[in-house]
């Protein structure tokens, strides 16, 4: 129980490193060690902050709130049979809005700087989050309908794969969650963290004005966010194991695979045209609706006769 946040946090420290390393390997570079982002963060933590004179207190508290909301969200994640620290009926709504609140603060901070680029990035980030939300909720709602439970822990523990259709839904959900994770973490194909041009940035441009301690917090939070989604995917695909150690091993393997696949996706996939992003994200919602309708069929809420 207490262990869940700890392992997720541990994973989050090396997650960006693994992604970077995978990308380096694929293009044939040696690459930095996987713990390099962690060391970078430690170095940043030792530095002071520089604030622009045009910014207000919002700009200063935003990173702390961002980090703390994501940290809080982490506490809602169960790991297999290990219940989450915080768990109650309907906790996934709180989970989603904690993340949203953190994001809201970042957007507010970006607007606070008064920079045109940051405002544009904030605009995009807000729009994409808006579009991704229905997909997330429809998937979770289908799960809830299928299991008749509304907390993460019960949801995942009662997810029995019985009929062929439920396998389809599981695959569909993992697929959608994978892409939600990519969008929420501002990765390809929606956003490219490597980009050098402010005009094409989404998330990176929002944090341009941060330095030192605040930047380290934001980067740490991003790592945790990735690890959270990895943990959620792990919960989807995990065959319920009673052995704790086996679960833990599977957890790390899933996270490693997730990180590697993110790296691989980023190496082989090109970034979408900016104008194509909304429709691409919306298609996830459309697929989620299909999954939802399938659940309605399975559970007999809609009876389609043979």
């Amino acid at each position: 129980m207490v262990l869940n946040p700890v392992v997720i946090f541990l994973v989050s420290l090396v997650f960006p490193g693994v992604v970077a390393r995978t990308k380096a390997k694929i293009v044939g570079r040696k690459g930095a060690p996987v713990v390099q982002p962690f060391f970078d963060n430690i170095r940043l933590f030792q530095k002071g902050n520089v604030y622009s004179q045009t910014t207000s207190w919002i700009f200063q508290i935003a990173p702390v709130i961002y980090f703390s909301t994501i940290f809080m969200a982490m506490l809602f994640i169960p790991l297999g049979k290990q219940p989450a620290l915080l768990s109650f009926e309907g906790d996934f709504v709180v989970f989603a809005y904690l993340l949203a609140f953190g994001k809201f603060m970042m957007i507010a901070a970006a607007m606070d700087t008064g920079s045109g680029f940051e405002g544009m990035g904030a605009n995009r980030e807000a729009f994409y989050s808006l579009l991704v939300e229905p997909a997330f909720f429809i998937v979770i709602a289908s799960m809830a309908l299928l299991t008749n439970h509304t907390s993460f822990y019960n949801l995942f523990n009662n997810l029995h794969l019985e009929s062929e259709l439920s396998y389809l839904i599981a695959v569909l959900s993992v697929y959608i969650f994978l892409w939600i994770a990519m969008i929420e973490n501002s990765r390809l194909p929606v956003d490219d963290p490597k980009t050098h041009l402010e005009l094409t940035m989404v998330h990176e441009v929002m944090v341009l004005d941060y330095s030192g301690f605040d930047l380290a917090l934001i980067q740490l939070a991003n790592g945790i966010k990735f690890a959270i989604y990895g943990a959620l995917i792990f919960n989807f695909v995990l065959p319920m194991q009673d052995y704790f150690v086996a679960q833990l091993v599977i957890f790390f393997v899933v996270q490693l695979l997730f990180a590697i696949s993110v790296g691989a996706l980023e190496s082989f996939k090109a970034r979408n045209k900016m104008a194509k992003n909304p429709q691409w994200i919306l298609s996830l919602s459309a697929l989620a609706i299909l999954g939802f309708l399938s659940v309605l069929i399975i559970t007999g809420k809609i009876i389609l006769m043979d």
Partner: peptide
């Protein structure tokens, strides 16, 4: 039914 749902999914991709 799985195939039918997949068929519907192709429909979504036609418009994407």
């Amino acid at each position: 039914i799985v195939l039918i749902v997949l068929f519907a999914a192709t429909l979504v991709y036609f418009f994407l």
